[in-house]
């Protein structure tokens, strides 16, 4: 089965203004979905873990650069919260590198193509999410 990388991003609405017009290089071979947040500071730890439960090979959180956060503290809080999630990932047996925080100014449009490539590398290196395979295995069994 050809592995199709799946990535979910929790993106603050200012960063989400970056649009397809500045989209990724055509060679990025992973499917990236975006869940919009009002602020990176709104990131919910359980939402990140839910993403992994549902089979995301990598998850990223995008927020304004820390000192430029439009809500002053949002990105800082987001990073703090993610520290805990990284711990959980480690103790559960998922590679910590599957979760990454990108501080992106809402103006670094072309940078998105770089990020897409980086995510692809990550996914290829880390391989598919073991939870996803198990879930799929389960579904196969139920059939």
């Amino acid at each position: 089965m050809i592995h199709k990388g799946k990535v979910v991003g929790f993106v603050c609405k200012f960063c989400a203004l970056l649009n397809f017009d500045l989209g990724p290089a055509p060679e990025a071979a992973i499917h990236i979905e975006v869940v919009e947040l009002p602020c990176a500071g709104r990131i919910d730890s359980r939402a990140v873990l839910t993403a992994f439960e549902h089979g995301a090979d990598a998850v990223f959180v995008m927020g304004c650069p820390t000192h430029e956060c439009m809500n002053i503290n949002g990105s800082r809080r987001a990073e703090q919260r993610l520290l805990r999630v990284w711990e959980i990932l480690g103790s559960v047996g998922l590679n910590r590198n599957r979760l990454v925080f990108y501080p992106v100014s809402g103006t670094e449009g072309p940078h998105l193509s770089q990020i897409a490539r980086e995510l692809e590398e990550r996914v290829v290196q880390l391989g598919p999410n073991p939870l996803r395979l198990r879930r799929q295995g389960k579904e196969l069994q139920e059939q």
């Binding site: 979910v8 869940v35 947040l37 009002p38 602020c39 500071g41 709104r42 990131i43 919910d44 359980r46 939402a47 839910t50 993403a51 549902h54 809500n71 503290n73 949002g74 809080r77 919260r81």
Partner: peptide
Amino acid sequence: CGMCAAECPNKAIELHQYEVNQLYERTG
């Protein structure tokens, strides 16, 4: 911005349009 909602220990605050259950659902 939703930070109060994110920090509230009892999840007593919800941010309209970005409620916690909506976030889990959208992730799914």
